[in-house]
Design a protein around this nucleic acid. Structure first.
Lengths: 206, 206
DNA sequence: GTCTATAGTGCGATAGAC
DNA sequence: GTCTATCGCACTATAGAC
């Protein structure tokens, strides 16, 4: 085989293998968490040998970190796109809330990703901070900017209001989906959205 | 009770050992999660032999479940006590929010407990459900009852409003404390409380 | 493939209660 | 002395990092 020695950087086809490994790693780490995942299972799930895994990633921590950073970038890019709001506040806020709620509740991977980020935020504080910087902060900022640039809404503290708006929605997902509260404390998504927009618009001359 | 309940092993002084084991288990499980904790370390942290641990708890899962159920009962009892609200809405809501925020942010154990409940909600869905039933649901219900019994607040959907109120606060804790967002997206607790009460009271004739 | 860690068991020894 | 909780430790079998 004209396969190069693996101590150095990989050649042309490197990207494919990395993709493959990350895919297997995602399956395992999201399902079992960091400590609950073995490198053997990652290799098996990826369809490569353990040696191949270790030729691309220094160790378990490195693979986990690379995976989670990548997921943070890709999986929540949608949120940043929606959050470019124009138009009437009532519609903009409704749409933002609906997209966030539907986007996440329909995709089990999002839910599991959120769970793992929180789960490992003790062992991997830097990952949590990357998540905050890459997702929470920009979404928050866009919403703050929108709220602040619409003085007719009469919102006294846009930064706090943005936290309330997004925080309510995210915590709704955590209770209903992540903590399996759907059947115990059921509540329709639409009622959350209705009440949230009601409160946000309560200061406007309506 | 000469030979107490047959389901329980050991004699009268058993409680001490159980307490000791649970204390060690708390230290380890809260610090490292379920998969990241070894029974040897639990025994060491508890200052007992592994055999003793296994004489009181059937296995690792049983010990973990017993610990977490106990913590759910004791650690958040305070919330249920506060949530017996009487008096003017503005004050009641402020006090509830302040107590919840201070209670949790000042006690690292609360934060870690919340983290572990979410972390293990995939592997131990029943624990998450116990948490919802014993803490989330009763607190939610008391707040709903309060909001609903004060029609002058003019809240269209008390159930959704209660979710928004508590969800905002809990998510604030998750972002600031659990995900280490304090320095990245700082926000004073008081501003959250001010804005939350502002929205809740926005329908009242003020 | 190697070396370490871990869940769970078994047993002899100890020390205290009656 | 008898009973028993507990300790300490050796042991198996399995799994995991690398």
């Amino acid at each position: 085989m004209a396969r190069a020695k693996s101590t150095e950087l990989k050649r042309e086809s490197a990207g494919e293998k990395v993709e493959q490994i990350l895919k297997g790693a995602m399956q395992e780490f999201l399902a079992h968490g960091y400590a609950g995942t073995s490198m053997d299972r990652v290799a098996a799930a990826a369809g490569v040998s353990k040696a191949t895994v270790y030729s691309y990633f220094a160790d378990k921590e490195g693979l986990f970190a690379a995976l989670m950073e990548g997921l943070a970038k890709k999986r929540f890019q949608i949120l940043l796109d929606i959050a470019s709001p124009t138009g009437e506040a009532k519609i903009v806020l409704r749409q933002l809330a609906e997209t966030l709620l539907n986007q996440v509740t329909e995709d089990a991977e999002h839910i599991t990703f959120m769970r793992v980020i929180i789960a490992e935020s003790g062992r991997f504080p830097n990952l949590a901070k990357i998540f905050i910087r890459q997702i929470t902060q920009p979404v928050l900022e866009k919403l703050v900017h929108y709220l602040a640039s619409h003085p007719e809404l009469n919102i006294p503290d846009p930064e706090a209001a943005a936290r309330i708006f997004l925080g309510s929605l995210v915590q709704f997902i955590i209770i209903q989906e992540i903590l399996h509260g759907k059947e115990i404390v059921p509540l329709d998504k639409e009622r959350m959205i209705d009440s949230l927009t009601h409160f946000m618009l309560s200061g406007a001359g309506k």
